[in-house]
Each structure stands twice: as structure tokens, then as C-alpha cells.
Design a protein around this nucleic acid. Structure first.
Lengths: 110, 110
DNA sequence: TTTTTATGTCGTATGTTTACGTCATTAAAC
DNA sequence: GTTTAATGACGTAAACATACGACATAAAAA
């Protein structure tokens, strides 16, 4: 009965909140940054780059995949991960739009 | 011994993650949006606007205050809250910079 | 075919967030 | 001076996130 009242809010706020939550862990941000720079994108390489156990990194990768920020493509034993540019563009649009919305120019007092 | 390995990551990623975490709840986004629109900003008004208990809203307000997104100013019995534009501008800069960084143009495959 | 390698899934301990009722405090109204 | 009103702080239950070891799977190498 307690908990999870998030659905009481506007859909657009819920979406921004969802994306923000995904970005709320530095490991996931580090993964995104790494994927933006590397060419190979193999899961193992990401694991080596991140100072956490393989399992934990894998878990973060699944999260990123779940919201659509990255894609994974099986290549034999290995998995190639890469960023979803469409999704990132979309997120950028959403964030900027929200932050613009709350950037008032004429400030009232404090 | 388990838990909280966040400090192993770059300071800039930690800061973005911290801000993202604050933005990861629709109630807090709704508060920010409301503060951007209203003139009065009295705590009680915010509580009426948000479909959560007074205590919970107060808690969210403290969180927003903690990271510097809003300021509160005591006015007798009441408290006037308002957005911190400097902080919001800063956040916008940080987010856009990170999202630009991971927006690769030449995509490799997927 | 057996072994090795790369990855994901499951279980679980511990820490954190969310949500709210109750209590404390302090200013204003009476 | 008492009462009422507006807030914040405290305590706490339930849900969720983080981190990781152990197990499972399936491709590649030996």
C-alpha cells in the first residue's frame, strides 16, 4: 500500500524520471561514455573498463538495454554492445525541453 | 563491504549521476515545474499541487534543497520556495555536454 | 568429445528510497 | 496566554537498487 505513486504524475514527467534514473549511476554513465569512444563494444571490454565485477556490469548493461539506450548483438560467444543514437537524441530533446521549461527568466525574489 | 562503489568513477560522472538521481522521481520534477510557473511558491501550495502526503512532499523539497536546485525562505509561519536559476543553468550545461559527448555521428553497425 | 571462454541468470546480503503517521517547534490569530 | 496553523524532524515499513558469488548455457578451441 505504501510505495510507487509515480503513476499519479504526468506521462512526460514519468518518462524523464525513468531516463534520469538510468543516468543516476556513474557506472552506467561510464559505460555510455566508453561505448561512444570505442569501436569494438565487446561486453568483455566494457567489463575491463569498469571497476566493478563482471556480474554487476552485466546487470547495468541489461538496465541500459531495457530502456533502449544501447543495443546488444550476439556474435558467437561474444556480444557487441553499442549506443542507440535515436534514443539518445530523443532523451536529449526531452531533457532540454524540460530544463528550458523550468528556466524562468524573471526571477521572483530569492 | 558490498555497496557504494560510486566514488570509483570520474568526478564529473558522479556529479551528473547525483543530479540525475534527484530528477529521477516525477514528484520532484512536478515540484520544479510548479515552482517555475507559480508566483507564490508557498510550501503549502506545493503540497496541495502534489498527490502525495504533506510529509512526503516536504521530504522531496529537502532533497531538492540539498543539491541546490531550490531555495527556501522563511516568512513567518510559512516558507517560500523558489528555483535556483544558477543551479538549473549549470545542470543544463552539464547534461547537454554529456549527452553531446555520447552522441556519436558515424555509427558503427547497430 | 572434452575443455575452455564469454556471457547471462539466480539468489541473496546489505544499503537506500519512498511514503506516511506522529511528534516537536514556532509564528500568528484569538 | 491559549489555541490554531504551517512546517520540519523522527521513526519505520515496504519496496527497490547495488554488488557479487555461484550456477547455467552455449560457442569456440583443443
Amino acid at each position: 500500500m505504501t510505495y510507487k505513486k509515480a503513476d499519479l504524475f504526468d506521462k512526460d514527467l514519468q518518462r524523464i524520471a525513468e531516463v534520469a534514473k538510468i543516468m543516476s549511476h556513474p557506472a552506467r554513465l561510464a559505460i555510455l561514455r566508453y561505448l561512444a569512444n570505442c569501436k569494438t563494444c565487446i561486453s568483455g571490454d566494457i567489463t575491463n573498463e569498469i571497476p566493478l565485477s563482471r556480474t554487476t556490469v552485466s546487470q547495468h548493461l541489461q538496465e541500459l538495454k531495457r530502456v533502449g539506450l544501447i543495443h546488444g548483438e550476439i556474435d558467437g560467444l561474444k556480444v557487441n554492445y553499442c549506443l542507440c543514437n535515436t534514443c539518445i537524441t530523443d532523451i536529449k530533446k526531452n531533457f532540454i525541453s524540460f530544463l528550458d521549461e523550468i528556466s524562468i527568466t524573471e526571477n521572483i525574489k530569492c
